Simulated assay, not measured.
Amino acid sequence: MKLNSFQEKLNKENKTDFSQLTAVFINCTLKKSPEKSHTSGLISMSAQIMEDNGIHVDIIRAVDHNIAFGVYPDMTEHGWDKDDWPTIQKKVMDANILVIGTPIWLGEKSSVATQVIERLYGFSGETNEHGQYAYYGRVGGCLVTGNEDGIKHVGMNVLYSLQHLGYTIPPQADAGWIGEAGPGASYMDEGSGGPENDFTNRNTTFMTWNLMHMAKMLKDNDGIPAHGNQRTEWDNSNHKDNPNPEYR
């Protein structure tokens, strides 16, 4: 992805060292490689900004992998013959930044995005070295493409899901592009106007820099302070003076 002159100016003038950060983009297109993915086109803009600022980026197209359905870390332990998700999960846990990219279908995120979030959820009960939920200290964002309304709806769903799992969501952590309602040109199609759209380019740029800044802040401060949010402390406490009510 070739960045515009202002995006390149921001990269050149940046004085913050982001080189210790890593990012994972999960493209939830329905199309297997090498078929063209319009979501991939928008992802490439954000990924290019990160790479130009020294961040190691890994882009995963989910449908190219054999991902089992379920909400456990490894579904081969629950009746599935094969499951590539544990390898993807490790990359997610090694990254400071996670961005979910998805097309819109029937006004919703793709079925692949739903499956990816379900599998992320399967790891949400794990804890880190501070006794917090495992995703604490990481930041999340969302990129959306399509030919129908729904960017904000999909963004709300994805970003809510990520924060519920423990991700920190910075300001303006989503961006997207939609074409004219109904059949028509998609983001990467010739003459669509997608790659040149100023609104999309601005929001994608802001999202990317906000993710980088927040991830840097969290890394430099060893994540979210561990007080009042430690699952291990809660489980080990003597708080039986306030039990759950009995339902009759």
Rank of each mutant, 00 (worst) to 15 (best):
M1Q: 07
K2G: 08
F6N: 08
K9Y: 12
T16P: 01
N27R: 05
T29I: 05
T29V: 12
S37L: 03
G41S: 03
G41Y: 01
I43L: 09
M45S: 01
Q48A: 12
M50P: 00
V57G: 12
D58L: 08
H65F: 15
A68C: 03
G70Q: 04
M75C: 11
E77V: 06
W80T: 07
K82P: 02
Q89R: 09
M93T: 06
A95P: 11
A95G: 14
W105N: 13
L106K: 14
S111E: 11
S111P: 03
S111K: 04
V112M: 05
V112P: 04
A113F: 06
E126Y: 14
N128Y: 07
H130K: 14
G131E: 07
A134T: 09
Y136N: 14
G140M: 03
C142Q: 05
C142R: 05
V144I: 09
N147R: 11
D149T: 11
V154T: 09
G155P: 02
N157T: 14
L159F: 08
S161P: 09
Y167L: 15
W177Q: 03
I178D: 01
G179S: 04
E180N: 10
G193Q: 09
P195Y: 02
T200V: 02
T204K: 01
D222Y: 13
D222P: 02
A226D: 13
G228T: 07
W234L: 15
